[in-house]
């Protein structure tokens, strides 16, 4: 007999697995500057989870990246803060002006634009860190990396958002269905 709190627990496990996927894919692709699936995954998670759940995922991801890996700045607040602010913009945008759209073209253009926003959020914090307060060198130096991030975000959202959204929706529906495990009810083909 299923306990009454099984559904929230399963959802929590699913969120933890999503956080793990988010972290691992970033580490695997860390050798390619700004080429990542993070933008696409955060958009997919924002589309299937609640705002609070997505914000929790972003918090876990950013803290993990900053605590454990070399991609972050060793828990440097001047790296952690802009990273957190930038990634939080995705669920905020998705739940506000994007109106929880499932249109992959609109989301792909958002991901393209977000690649630039992500870089710009870092500029004032980088200025504080290196203590050189000239705006243009930072903007120009980061532009090639923003272009890479925007393009990889655009392509991954355009091609992978729909199938991953559908898969995750099916998974969530199956774990919320009483008495059925995901493996019993879904073939994921």
């Amino acid at each position: 007999m299923r306990r009454p709190d099984a559904k929230p627990l399963r959802r929590l496990i699913l969120l933890a697995m999503c956080a793990a996927i988010l972290y691992v894919q970033q580490q695997v692709l860390a050798f390619l500057p700004n080429v990542q699936f993070t933008t696409m995954l955060v958009i997919v998670f924002a589309s299937v989870f609640t705002f609070k759940e997505t914000v929790s995922l972003v918090f876990v991801h950013v803290f993990l990246v900053n605590l454990i890996s070399f991609v972050g700045g060793g828990f440097n607040p001047l790296v952690l803060t802009p990273m957190l602010l930038a990634w939080l913009l995705v669920p905020i945008a998705y739940n506000t002006f994007l109106r929880r759209t499932k249109n992959e073209v609109a989301l792909a253009f958002f991901a393209l634009f977000f690649g630039f926003i992500y870089g710009w959020v870092f500029i004032p914090f980088t200025m504080l860190q290196v203590e050189v307060f000239e705006f243009w060198p930072y903007l120009l130096a980061d532009l090639p990396f923003e272009i890479i991030m925007g393009t990889s975000g655009f392509l991954t959202v355009l091609w992978l958002f729909k199938p991953l959204h559908r898969l995750l929706r099916r998974e969530i529906a199956s774990i919320e269905k009483d008495g059925a495990s995901p493996t019993e009810s879904d073939d994921f083909s």
Partner: peptide, 22 residues
């Protein structure tokens, strides 16, 4: 449509990348 959009954005990105690179 997706292929055309992807090619367009990649071409645009490549142009911009080389324009803004050192």
């Amino acid at each position: 449509m997706k292929i055309a959009l992807s090619l367009f954005v990649v071409a645009l990105a490549l142009g911009a990348y080389f324009f803004f690179s050192p």
